[in-house]
Design a protein around this nucleic acid. Structure first.
Length: 180
DNA sequence: CGAGTTTGACCCGCGC
DNA sequence: GCGCGGGTCAAACTCG
């Protein structure tokens, strides 16, 4: 299984979130009301349960070093994470393949829906067996854009939200137009 | 009145 | 074939 890091530089048409993380954290992080304390990407197999990514079986790659998720879980105390500004993009995992447009990340926030600069329409809500918290389904509201995202709260610590994106936007984010 | 949300129903894949 | 779980649809509803 190959592993690659998701670029954190905003590129037109790329998934917005890594770049949004960068831009938001750099200036108005406090205004957003959440911390990008953690970050990870999905395996190719999209059918896998999100919770499995938080289990000890999944390897995790840090930006500055490597460690297993078992090790990282010991360091997953939010207090530890918040101690450094560099930890907003602490860890990430991504596997290669044609389906690399799927990405998930986990962040500490009280908000249910994060403003990532795009406009989303909610089209479903589902209780899943593996998580007592409901999973919400969103589609990008832009015409012709088929990007979807799922949002659910982590089982172990409901202060963390797991957001999963599928697909690549075929348009600019309204946020970036404003921002730039 | 249009856009967005809610929610039950439906569909589909998978395991047995 | 059947049941289960997850994802999507769409009508009804809410809100500005």
């Amino acid at each position: 299984m190959s592993t690659l890091l998701v670029p954190l530089i905003q590129t037109p048409g790329s998934n917005p979130n890594p770049s949004m993380i960068n831009s938001c954290v750099n200036d108005n992080r406090d205004d957003l009301g959440f911390d990008f304390s953690d970050y990870l990407a999905l395996e190719d197999d999209y059918s896998c349960n999100l919770s499995s990514f938080l289990s000890d079986s999944a390897p995790v790659i840090l930006q500055d070093n490597l460690q297993t998720s078992a090790e990282s879980s010991m360091n997953s105390n939010p207090d530890d994470v918040d101690n450094s500004h560099d930890h907003h993009l602490k860890r990430m995992k991504c596997t290669g393949g044609d389906k690399g447009s799927r990405i998930a990340f986990r962040m500490k926030t009280e908000l249910e829906v994060l403003d990532d600069g795009y406009k989303w329409r909610k089209y479903g809500k589902k209780m899943v067996k593996s998580n007592p918290n409901p999973r919400n389904y969103y589609k990008c509201s832009a015409v012709g854009c088929k990007v979807k995202k799922r949002i659910e709260r982590e089982i172990k610590d409901t202060s963390y939200v797991i957001t999963t994106y599928e697909g690549i936007h075929n348009h600019e984010t309204p946020h970036s137009l404003f921002y730039f």
